Amino acid sequence: MDDDSHGDEHTPAQHDRTHDRALNARHDIEEQLRTQRARLEAGNEKLKARTGRNLPAAIGIGIGLGGAVLVSLILIKALFMIVAVVLIFFIVFELTTAIRTAGRDVPRLPSVLVGIAIVPASFYFKAEGQWLTLIGGIVFVSLWRLALQLGSARRTGAVDLWRDLGSGAFVQIYTTFLGSFLVLLTAQNGGQWWALGTLIVVISVDTGAYATGLSFGKHPMAPRISPKKTWEGFAGSVAAAMIAGVIISIFMIHQPWWLGLVLGAVLTLTATMGDLTESLIKRDLGIKDISTWLPGHGGFLDRLDSTLPSAVVAYALYLIFATR
């Protein structure tokens, strides 16, 4: 009777074997996870070595920024001012910091304040507000720098002072002024769709150049400025931009299909020029990225360099074709 009543209980040896099997299974799972993680990291490193960036992080950051812009332009375009203020704040701060690191004394606080001020000025007072804020902003930054010159600890020679003043004006023209054209475009009647379309075409330029150059790129386009840019990538950017331009022209801004070809071709040139311009600036400053705030992209200016000159041309095209 006693043997039958305890026949279904495990002996200590059985408990030990069950425990060992559980431990072995756990170790096998952990080993498989470590192996998969190692493979994933190795794959990411190979991809990073080939592309020059952390691609998963770059995609994530791109989706986040694109989502913020998309929501603001589609829902209430006045919300785009918030996005624009954040973006212009960062690109002005990044560029002034990089220039200061290179030895030029460009005041960051007044530079950033001017960048913030031009957004509502452009949105509510259009071109007049944009130009007045730009001119007043350059004067403001210059006077700030001259005031610092009066302090004995910040005095420099006349040549260096002029270079500092010129660098401060350059920051405002290159980042604040060019960036504000997208705000100016958004403020127009139906301009938010032109602004969104411009961004989509510019993204198409970058994506087309990246994908085509990565797959087929053999002939460098500007090896001394941007070694990874190729003519094959440029051809891919033209094709992608024109396809995107035609779709946007017909379905988003309600213009003739051929305007999409014009939009794609022109924005390909301006986006490429913007990318090469920033590469030239970084080369002159002796840095790889303007900042490291955006994993996979570098800095905000590294992400928006193609957009800055493209916004100017898009605004001009809007005035020519949408206001007739």
Score class of each variant (00 low, 15 high):
G7P: 00
D8F: 15
E9W: 14
T11W: 12
Q14H: 11
Q14K: 10
H15Y: 13
R17H: 09
T18Y: 12
R21M: 09
A22W: 04
L23Q: 14
L23N: 13
N24K: 15
N24L: 14
A25G: 14
A25I: 07
A25M: 13
E30Q: 12
E31F: 00
R34I: 01
T35P: 00
R37A: 14
A38N: 12
A38Q: 14
R39Y: 06
R39D: 14
A57Q: 12
A58R: 00
A58C: 05
I63D: 13
I63G: 10
L65Y: 09
G66E: 11
L75E: 06
L75I: 13
K77M: 01
L79D: 09
M81V: 04
I91F: 11
I91N: 14
I99D: 08
R100N: 15
T101S: 13
G103K: 11
P107T: 10
P110C: 06
V112Q: 08
V114R: 02
G115P: 11
F123L: 09
Y124W: 15
K126D: 15
L132P: 00
T133I: 04
G136P: 06
V139C: 05
F140N: 11
V141T: 04
S142D: 06
S142F: 08
L143G: 03
L143E: 04
R145A: 08
S152I: 05
R155D: 01
R155V: 00
A169K: 07
V171Q: 00
S180D: 08
S180M: 06
F181D: 00
L182F: 11
V183S: 04
L184F: 13
L185D: 10
A187W: 12
Q188W: 01
N189C: 02
G190Y: 00
W193T: 05
T198N: 12
V201H: 02
V201S: 02
V205D: 00
G208H: 07
Y210L: 10
A211R: 01
G217D: 01
M221F: 15
K229Y: 02
T230N: 08
E232W: 07
F234A: 09
A239P: 00
A240C: 12
M242K: 01
I243A: 14
V246R: 08
V246Q: 07
I248Y: 10
I250K: 09
G260N: 06
V262E: 01
V262K: 00
A265T: 12
L267T: 02
T268I: 11
L269R: 02
M273F: 15
G274K: 12
L276W: 07
T277K: 00
T277A: 14
S279T: 03
S279I: 00
L280K: 12
R283Q: 08
G286D: 02
D289E: 09
S291Y: 05
L294D: 03
L294Q: 04
L304V: 13
T307V: 15
P309A: 05
S310W: 12
V313F: 14
A314L: 09
A316G: 06
A316D: 03
Y318H: 07
Y318S: 07
L319N: 11
T323F: 08
